[in-house]
Computed example of a mutant assay.
Amino acid sequence: MAAHPPLAPGWIARPHLRCDIGDLPLESGEVLRDAFVSYVMHGEPARQREGVILALTAIGSTHHRLDFLIGPGAPLDTDRHCVLVVDALGNGLSSSPSNSVLQAGSRFPRFTIRDMVESQRRLLAHLAVERLAAVVGASMGGMQALQWAVSHPDRMRSVVAMTPMARTARWSQLVNELARRALFEDAGCSRPRARAEAMRLWAPLTKLVMPRTPRAVEEIPDHAALLATMEQLATDLGQHGPDPFDWCWQSFAYDAHDVGGTPGFGGDTVRALRSIRARTLVLAPAEDLYNPPFAASQLAGVIPRCRFVELAGHDGHASASGPPAECNEQLKREIGAFLGEG
């Protein structure tokens, strides 16, 4: 596995676990050789018999993304459940272009959100986990959670999807394409730019423009402070940012996602969403410059047993990232109450 990024304030240090899942056939027809999945376990493993909460990761992030929701008495309550947080394919900890021995870099096969779900299904089989109390995720993690509910409708009682999409919006694809152009010299994404050069654009794009809102950025006191913030982001991510191939390959999966592509639905996104049997909670802000809010509210209106919550504040896509987002307490309250009812 790749080196773990430095622990940030609020992150929970847990042992890193690994499950080798063998050769993984992909939707593309290619095969991911010697695949493995990285994961952490919060709470007592014995509680696997009472119900596991499966938590899933966002694009470019690790198993720490939802740490602010995990713990004794927290929404993802380790007094009641074993919380299993799984690193998505391509994040540098599970099988990725940066850590593959046989298919490194641009030779790594492209995968999909459904391929991520299949890797996680293999992990659960290895752990002998059948029924899930809930599947939870934010952004790409929320997209995986919805895919779980479509692909395996009888495996979970509840789904919590924060800032998700059921079918990737053109706007999100546009933003991802701009980010890829910052990382690579060529359209085929085979020649990464020099790290420092790439981060001068990629870092502020992905850490200021995509996850925030104009109102939030206005809190930066002046233009000089804005430029200083951008330079600091570029410096920090130049040292600890994701591998360009890792982020790029996850973004390809992001762009291609549509739950309607699940076998049996013939590309019909609405019919796929209507097939979801789990109780579902969808949460999204009123303004989001990465995953458009209409994508979340529209899918919530189609899923049979779904509650939609609009998140307060002006943090945009970063609303589902924990402190210091204005809606942090609202998220905890809504998710805790919803899962407590299940």
Score class of each variant (00 low, 15 high):
Pro5Gln: 12
Ala8Trp: 00
Ala8Ser: 15
Ile12Leu: 15
Leu17Gln: 11
Asp20Trp: 08
Asp23Phe: 09
Pro25Asp: 06
Glu27Trp: 05
Arg33Thr: 13
Ala46Gln: 03
Gly51Leu: 10
Ile53Pro: 02
Thr57Ala: 01
Ala58Glu: 06
Arg65His: 14
Gly73His: 14
Ala74Gln: 15
Ala74Thr: 10
Pro75Ser: 13
Arg80Gly: 04
Asp87Ile: 00
Asn91Asp: 15
Leu93Ile: 01
Ala104His: 15
Arg107Ile: 02
Ile113Asn: 00
Ile113Leu: 14
Glu118Asn: 09
Glu118Thr: 14
Leu123Val: 01
Leu127Ser: 03
Ala128Thr: 05
Ala128Asn: 07
Val129Tyr: 10
Leu132Asp: 02
Val135Gly: 01
Met143Lys: 00
Gln144Phe: 02
Gln144Tyr: 04
Leu146Asn: 00
Leu146Thr: 02
Gln147His: 14
Trp148Ile: 09
His152Asp: 00
Asp154Glu: 11
Thr168Arg: 04
Ala179Gln: 11
Arg180Pro: 06
Phe184Trp: 12
Glu185Lys: 01
Arg195Leu: 09
Leu201Gln: 12
Ala203Pro: 08
Ala203Cys: 03
Lys207Met: 07
Arg215Thr: 07
Ala216Pro: 00
Ala216Glu: 08
Glu219Leu: 10
Glu219Gly: 08
Glu219Val: 03
Leu226Lys: 09
Ala228Arg: 14
Thr229Cys: 09
Asp236Cys: 02
Pro242Tyr: 07
Pro242Thr: 08
Asp243Ala: 08
Pro244Phe: 08
Phe245Ala: 12
Gln250Asp: 10
Phe252Gln: 05
Gly261Tyr: 07
Thr262Pro: 01
Pro263Arg: 04
Gly267Lys: 04
Leu273Glu: 05
Arg274Asp: 10
Ala278Tyr: 01
Arg279Lys: 09
Pro285Ser: 10
Glu287Val: 10
Glu287Lys: 05
Asn291Ile: 08
Ala295Tyr: 03
Ala296Phe: 13
Ala296Arg: 11
Val302Lys: 07
Arg305Gln: 09
His314Pro: 01
Ser321Met: 05
Ser321Lys: 00
Pro324Val: 02
Lys332Tyr: 05
Glu334His: 13
Ala337Leu: 05
Gly340Lys: 13
